[in-house]
């Protein structure tokens, strides 16, 4: 931030009022160049992100026909979606999925960051290994997780049925919606906790060590140092992580759909509605709009009530 103010505060040589040969001032030319350079990016973002979002709202009022004219139906799609039991089931699944995966990934990230902030041999290697789940393509890791929970060959059942006897028989945890959602949550935590870990670790490294020294002189115990120094210092970044993770996990599609076909969170439900079977794009658009409204509502609530900006 500081660098930004310093750099942009300085005007190019010549000063802003100097009239140049083409009749424009330096400031005007800078404005023109600024827009010219950013315009391609802005145009493409407007055309391919902002316009589709608005067009999506428009589509939600139509019975969409891919090959012919679409028919205006008013709020019919909205009424149908809200009257559909499956929508409410999907919403409930989404809330469970988002809540547990976000809290899990954030807590595990916090714990890991605290551990990785200590000095120990091979720390550099360990730190980069931890990031592997986050960078690996979803498609390349889902099969390994499916195999892990595979009822016939999987290691999970080998340990918890054969060795420990916690289950009465080998069961397919990914096979039924009630248990598959928990598999999806564990997978999401595994895949995404490195993000929380990384953000928190970089915040921990920025804490002034004098604070801890001063606390030690005052005779503070380890847990007091954690409660009264570390936690307040990471409070903001943890909140930011929770906010981002809720947004991202709420919109997640691949990490659920590729792992199991039995967990119908809203994004998966929308995808199935819009692109399989009858391909009802109008209802799909309606679902997408409702998701977006829910998300905006949550963001406003969280920012106003929890972070208190």
């Amino acid at each position: 931030m500081h660098a930004q103010i310093k750099n942009t505060g300085k005007l190019p040589p010549g000063g802003s009022a100097t009239a140049l040969t083409d009749g424009r001032t330096r400031a005007q030319r800078e404005e023109l160049l600024g827009w010219a350079l950013v315009l391609p990016s802005v145009a493409i973002i407007l055309a391919l992100i902002l316009y589709p979002v608005l067009y999506n709202i428009y589509l939600s009022f139509y019975q969409v026909n891919l090959s012919g004219a679409s028919r205006f139906v008013g709020f019919l799609n909205h009424r149908e979606v809200l009257g559909d039991r499956e929508f409410w089931n999907a919403l409930l699944t989404t809330i469970i999925y988002v809540a547990f995966s976000t809290v899990g990934a954030t807590l595990l990230g916090l714990g890991t960051a605290l551990v990785m902030n200590e000095k120990f041999p091979l720390r550099g290697l360990v730190r980069s290994l931890i990031l592997l789940p986050y960078v690996a393509p979803v498609i390349s890791v889902v099969f390994s997780w499916q195999f892990f929970f595979d009822p016939v060959n999987g290691i999970f059942m080998d340990i918890f049925y054969d060795k420990l006897g916690w289950f009465s028989q080998r069961i397919n945890l990914i096979g039924s919606p009630a248990t598959a959602v928990w598999v999806a949550i564990i997978f999401s935590i595994w895949k995404n906790f490195p993000f929380a870990y990384l953000m928190i670790l970089s915040r921990l490294q920025a804490i002034d060590q004098n604070l801890y020294e001063a606390a030690e002189i005052d005779g503070a115990a380890g847990r007091h140092k954690f409660l009264y120094i570390t936690l307040p210092e990471v409070y903001f970044v943890v909140n930011a992580i929770i906010l981002l993770r809720v947004i991202w996990n709420f919109n997640k599609f691949e990490e659920v759909y590729l792992l199991t076909s039995n967990v119908k969170v809203l994004s998966v439900y929308t995808y199935l509605k819009a692109f399989t079977g009858a391909m009802d794009l109008g209802q799909g658009a309606t679902l997408a709009v409702l998701q977006f409204i829910l998300l905006i509502g949550f963001i406003l609530f969280y920012v106003k009530r929890v972070i208190k900006w």
């Binding site: 802005v42 589509l59 947004i247 919109n251 599609f253 819009a274 997408a288 905006i296």
Partner: peptide, 22 residues
């Protein structure tokens, strides 16, 4: 405005873009 994109999931853009491209 660029940062706003953080809020838009793929599924929100997929349906309208598919319709437009078709």
């Amino acid at each position: 405005g660029v940062l706003m994109v953080y809020m838009f999931g793929g599924i929100l853009l997929l349906i309208p873009l598919y319709k437009v491209f078709v």
